[in-house]
Design a protein around this nucleic acid. Sequence first.
DNA 1: CGCCGTACCTGGAGGC
DNA 2: TGCCTCCAGGTACGGC
Length: 276
Amino acid sequence: MPELPEAETIARGLDAAIAGRRIERIKIHRDEVVEPMSPAVFRRRLRGRYVERVGRRAKWITALLDDGGRWVTQLRMTGRFTWGSPSPLRAEPHLSASFVINNGDASGVLRFYDTRRFGRMWVLNESQWAEIDARLGVEPLSEELTPGSLAELLAGSSAPIRNWLLDQRRVAGIGNIYAVEACYRARIDPRRPAGSLERNDVRRLHNAIRRVLGRAVDRRGTTFSDYRDVLGAGGEFQNVLKAYGREDEQCARCGGTIERIVLAGRSAFFCAGCQV
DNA sequence: CGCCGTACCTGGAGGC
DNA sequence: TGCCTCCAGGTACGGC
């Protein structure tokens, strides 16, 4: 479900909801959500802490705590937060964890649902977080990603460019939807070896990555089924997808037909007429 | 080392 | 309706 734009939207919603507030009660409904931490240690490190700020790194949601710790969440495919009014912390289908958070004069409940149960959340110290952070590549919307730095990262790779874009160690935050859309916008065949891109290809790809992600953030992400922001609203970017999920439809740019292929086990969509 | 197939899970869609 | 297969926004791991 969530790639960079969805994680960004969720992080902004969480920041508005819980920054400056205290985590009063924690219930772990499914122990695996905190693996390899134990629920007891997770709760001990989080209970009573104030959340200073919620942000995003790649596809991770990170909340800075008042004791210097960091509460981090990896949403994976179907992880979802909801912020709502208090009610009993009872188990519901797909509910992995719930948190009672002091909301000024009242309290609210933050819930983490995860249908496919791939999502994880941990409370880390700064050096543990630094290790994770160091393994993640450059933020694609930051000034660090330039046509020149992208060209250096691409050099020497034989992986198809669509697969390369999914590798979080070089550029971090892009998932399958936006990798496919960026290749379409850049008019690059998703099968092209990453290291074969020439200067003009790299410039178009750089521009495409930033435009696609930037517009998807503006539209609060892409909703097919599971993804919702913390108040339950879907995104709008699915309405302007040009290639992803459009197998057999007409290409908006050249009138060709969008094809679906499988690369490294995952669908890619492209127009053979105008993506070279 | 780089790349890719597989595994981890559940549920929705579509074929029969 | 039921049963089967395929597919899904991510990523860790192991094999080659």
